[in-house]
Write a protein that binds this DNA or RNA. Structure first.
Lengths: 160, 160
DNA sequence: CATCTGAGTTCGATTCTCGAACCTAGATGG
DNA sequence: CCATCTAGGTTCGAGAATCGAACTCAGATG
């Protein structure tokens, strides 16, 4: 109980799997932009600052992973263009972005305060991400969350 | 409203700032391990699979950023050792990890289902991260969240 | 026909990451 | 006293990823 044993294999975990998709540099900033309605290559490039070659790569990866889709569209009297849109899976990354923003706001925004604030459109109150259980309890103390490992091969249960 | 103008500068944003600290490869997996109680260099190395040199670098970065602290400790009749602990700021990364895990669970865990589940210790109900406003409303539709840019220089307000 | 625009490619120069091997200082064993 | 073990790193060379700037290409536009 004092010193957990060394694992022989890196831990299998959804966090690691998620990071393989959205953990590369620029990937989450791309999702941020598309969430904000910025959908065209050049606009995403300008708003993120990613090098164009890298952006090409990230966009393709996010499409392959099912977070974005590449759609052709045509404005009145204009040629066909491409744009990137969030898929439902991509939209579900919103809590990841919010959680990062919340942490950055709190710990990295210096004197100036956060560069933007987010409010509930219904009631105007500030919005944050929190742990909530399905019975409706808001949980701020992470010690009140228990991990249960789905028994795979190497049995290691995590406690916090 | 149709096509947002190209930004001249990459967007200033807490997400980008947060990613400068925790966005490098392995950083969040290190935080995951320390959250789980794995505190020693070799144990973190084994659980994450990060190369040792990279791990040295990430640990130093996370200490510099104030998410971890490096503490010496001594077990009975043993020499002095070092361990890494979460600071309060590091503990506040929990929603980031949970949000990533939630997304990975939903979209990347294939047949086998999620490798672990998390429940509220009080009531046993599954825990997830959600947007909640300070008036207590749970918000699942992100269109009900409004962004208000703190008026800096280049005025661009974000709508979703 | 020349120009503009959107959406990429190509290129050479860093920079980062990987894995394996090596180093060091305090126990520990004989 | 010497060899060994362990924790916590360093060092090293090779390979992959990132960077910024310049180039391409096809369909409007003048």
């Amino acid at each position: 109980m004092t010193t957990p044993p060394l694992l022989e294999q890196p831990r299998v975990c959804s966090i690691a799997r998620a990071l393989e998709v959205v953990g590369e540099r620029w990937a989450l900033l791309v999702i941020r932009e598309v969430s904000l309605g910025v959908r065209r290559f050049d606009a995403i490039q300008a708003a993120t600052g990613a090098p164009r070659a890298v952006l090409t790569d990230r966009l393709a990866g996010l499409v392959r992973a099912g977070a974005l889709e590449r759609v052709s569209y045509r404005e009145e009297g204009s040629r066909t263009r491409w744009e990137y849109r969030l898929t439902p899976a991509g939209r579900e990354l919103a809590p990841v972005l919010s959680a990062l923003r919340q942490w950055g706001d709190r710990h990295l925004s210096g004197e100036a305060g956060p560069p933007a604030t987010f409010t509930h459109t219904g009631c105007g109150a500030p919005v944050r991400v929190r742990h909530v259980c399905d019975a409706g309890h808001v949980i701020d103390d992470t010690r009140m969350i228990s991990a249960v490992a789905e028994s795979t091969d190497s049995a290691d249960s995590a406690e916090r």
